[in-house]
Every structure is written in structure tokens, then in C-alpha cells.
Design a protein around this nucleic acid. Structure first.
Lengths: 211, 211
DNA sequence: ATCGAAAGTAACTAAATAGTGCGTTACCTG
DNA sequence: CAGGTAACGCACTATTTAGTTACTTTCGAT
């Protein structure tokens, strides 16, 4: 049988460790600030392996980013929003998005870094375009169903709504350091986090509900 | 009289050129990616001058950031929102915020960079705390006035509202590169920009208006 | 006019840092 | 078990970069 013996050499495991370490390092310092030596150390791998498996720092970043996007979209798909009443579906999406950002802080930071570089790394990824289409379609369907049922007003642009749902969570978290200082309150205090989620749910609902 | 002669040596002018060049470079590549040599070249100054006037790269970044914040808060103050009816005041604030981000793209990028570094550069600035307080107070007053007049519903948290107003503009612009790719539309097309502003005004108004 | 201080320059250093050349070791297949 | 292939590691290089040393030039006050 396979894997009874602890493998000293295991390409897949090494690759996985490098990717995990790279995700952390890139998230912490951005593409420019990340250090390849640090990634190698953290992955308990040799730097040479990074170049062997991924070719370059930029290629490694590309893979890390693609994986991060695939992960969130996959999680979204498994919410099964198609089978929920429109209002519940939307609430669940807003809550999920918020929680996902909270629990996967690397995601936000990787996206920030990619936008600093004008999205040049993901531009070629057909997989990402694919999963994004599915996602936009899903929100579109929720809005349509709500419209038909009379609980949502007509004419809400699904792309704008998507952006807003992301924005009100994302901005709060990515700018929590300057925010905590400028508004003189701890953005990460549990009550503050709860209050923000409640406010965001309210914002989205008021935006789509038929009055 | 002063300044008839073109001064070959002018400390103030050199400082100003360095600050301007630094703002551009830091905005373009972040604190980590920015190069001191590049800033010196762009400012048509000698690198030594940067260290003479500002001490270090980090100190320079600190000043650039502080100036950027002061600039936007000063512009906001001059909107004179206190003397406008509450609904108009809020619309004007949302529109101003959007336009400011659009016309001063460095601001967003500097803030992103500062948050990547956990806001450690602005933490000491009393000036910033001061202008921020004034700003929060202003939004608070608008909400209070609207409440009294019966056009706004009671109980809207001014800090949450502030964050949301910033978020829905900021996120769209800072993530426009990944956004344009993932949603397959040009986020910077003039019609797209107009549509976003309209959507944001709608979002904020629905959020605060008494029904 | 001249002298001292401030403005400005060029060339350097020490430390990082992305990427490699080349050799070694484990594992699988036949 | 032999031998090839893939996994792995060390130590190096070429370059970049923040920061500095030691110098020259300009300008205004006396």
C-alpha cells in the first residue's frame, strides 16, 4: 500500500509546503516585499526547489494568487444559494463574504498586491474567468428570483451589487489599521466586527428590497 | 523684491520636488517597491538631499502620507457641508469622495501601502487625529440634522456610514484591475464611472433615508 | 570682499537579494 | 541489483539598494 512509509522525498508535499509558505510571505509583504529565501526557509525547502518547480518569483506569485481565487469561488459555490429564498440567499452571501475575508486575511492582501501590479499575473488565467462567470451568474439569478417573487425591486445591477457586497467588507478589513487609528476605535474587537456585519447586511437589504 | 531671480539653490523648492516625486514613486510601487534613487532622479535632486531633509526612506514616506491625508481632509472641510440641507450634504460628500479618489489616485495607493505596514507611520501624527475628528464630527452633524428634520431615519452610526461611503468608491477603484478582468468590463470607461457613482449615491441614500 | 553656513554633488560601502551551477542522494523500474 | 531520473542542497554571482563620506559651490550677512 501507499504512504505507509514516511517519504523523505516527496515532490507534491514539497510543492504544497512552498505554496503555503509563499502565500503567507506574499500576503505579509506583497510581491515586492516578499523574500524568496524567506519562503524557502518557511517551507523547509531549498530555494533551488522553488526555481525548479515554479521557475521564478513571479510565476510562484501567479500560482498562489490563482489558487486563492479558486478557493474563495469554490467555497461560494458550495453555499448552494440557488436553493435558498432570495433574501436568505443574499444574506448568506454577504455573511459568507465577510467571514471569508476575516478567516482568510491572506486573500485580501494578495488581491491588493495584484492590483498594485495592475492584475498582470491573473490576466492569462482562463480558469479564473470561468469561475468568475459562474459567480456573477449566481448573483444575477438571486436578484431575478427576488424580482419575480416581488421581494426585490427591479433594475438592480448584479455586477454593481457584487462589487458593493465585497467593498463594504473588504475595505473595512484591509484598512483596519489606519481606520482604527483615525476613528479611534478597535476595528477588530469582536463587538466591532459584529456591528460591521449587521450594518452591511442592513445596507445590502435596503439596497435591493422592494419597499 | 523676492523671487525675481531664478534661484539656483532653493531648499524649499527642492524639498517640494522631493515630496512630489516621492508621492508618485511610493504610490506607484508602495513603500517596499519604491526606490530612493528613482525619487532623487525624478525630483531632479541628489539622493543625499533626501537624507539631508528627511532622514530616511521611512521618514519620507511618513511625511508624504501625512500630507496626503491632510490634503483630502482640507478639501472636505472646504465643501462647507454644514450649511447645506442634510440630503444635499450627504450627496455632495459621496460625490466628492468618489471624485477625489478618481482625481488623486495616489491617495488610495498610499493608504493601501500604509495598511500593508499596519499603519505604523501615521500612528504618531497628532495632526491627523485632529483633522479626522473634525471630519467624523461633520458627518455626525449631517445625520443629526437630517434626523431632526425627519428626512433621515434615526440610529445610523456615523462611523459605519463614513466607512461605507469610502468603501464603495475606494474598493471599486483600487481593485479595478482585477475587477475589469473578472467581470469582463472596463471599470474605467466614462459610462462605467458614471454608473458607479449613481449606484453609490443610491446605496447611501437608501441606507439613511426615512421611508 | 569675505567668510561661514547651507545647498548640492559624486563616488563609495555594506548588506540584501533573485537567480544558478553543479554536485549529491534517495527512490523507482526493469 | 543496477542505473537512471527526479528530488534536493550548498555555495556562489551579479546586481541592486539604502545610506554615507568627503568634497565643492552658492549665497547672504556683515
Amino acid at each position: 500500500m501507499a504512504e505507509t512509509k514516511v517519504r523523505v522525498r516527496d515532490a507534491d508535499a514539497t510543492k504544497a509546503r512552498i505554496l503555503e509558505a509563499a502565500k503567507e510571505e506574499f500576503a505579509k509583504l506583497g510581491l515586492g516585499g516578499a523574500r524568496v529565501d524567506e519562503i524557502a526557509d518557511r517551507a523547509k525547502a531549498n530555494k533551488r526547489m522553488i526555481y525548479h518547480y515554479f521557475g521564478s518569483k513571479e510565476e510562484l506569485f501567479k500560482i498562489v494568487l490563482e489558487e486563492a481565487y479558486i478557493d474563495i469561488r469554490t467555497a461560494e459555490q458550495s453555499l448552494d444559494l440557488e436553493h435558498l429564498p432570495p433574501r436568505e440567499a443574499l444574506c448568506k452571501l454577504v455573511t459568507f463574504t465577510w467571514r471569508y475575508y476575516l478567516e482568510n486575511p491572506e486573500f485580501i492582501r494578495l488581491v491588493n498586491s495584484e492590483n498594485l501590479h495592475k492584475a498582470r499575473h491573473i490576466k492569462e488565467s482562463d480558469r479564473l474567468r470561468e469561475v468568475s462567470r459562474r459567480f456573477t451568474g449566481m448573483v444575477h439569478d438571486i436578484l431575478k428570483r427576488g424580482e419575480t417573487e416581488g421581494v426585490f425591486r427591479p433594475g438592480v445591477d448584479p455586477v454593481q451589487l457584487n462589487i458593493t457586497i465585497a467593498a463594504i467588507g473588504y475595505y473595512y478589513l484591509t484598512n483596519r489599521f489606519t481606520g482604527s487609528f483615525l476613528f479611534e476605535q478597535d476595528f477588530m474587537a469582536p463587538e466591532a466586527l459584529d456591528a460591521r456585519l449587521a450594518f452591511n447586511l442592513d445596507t445590502v437589504m435596503r439596497l435591493v428590497e422592494a419597499r
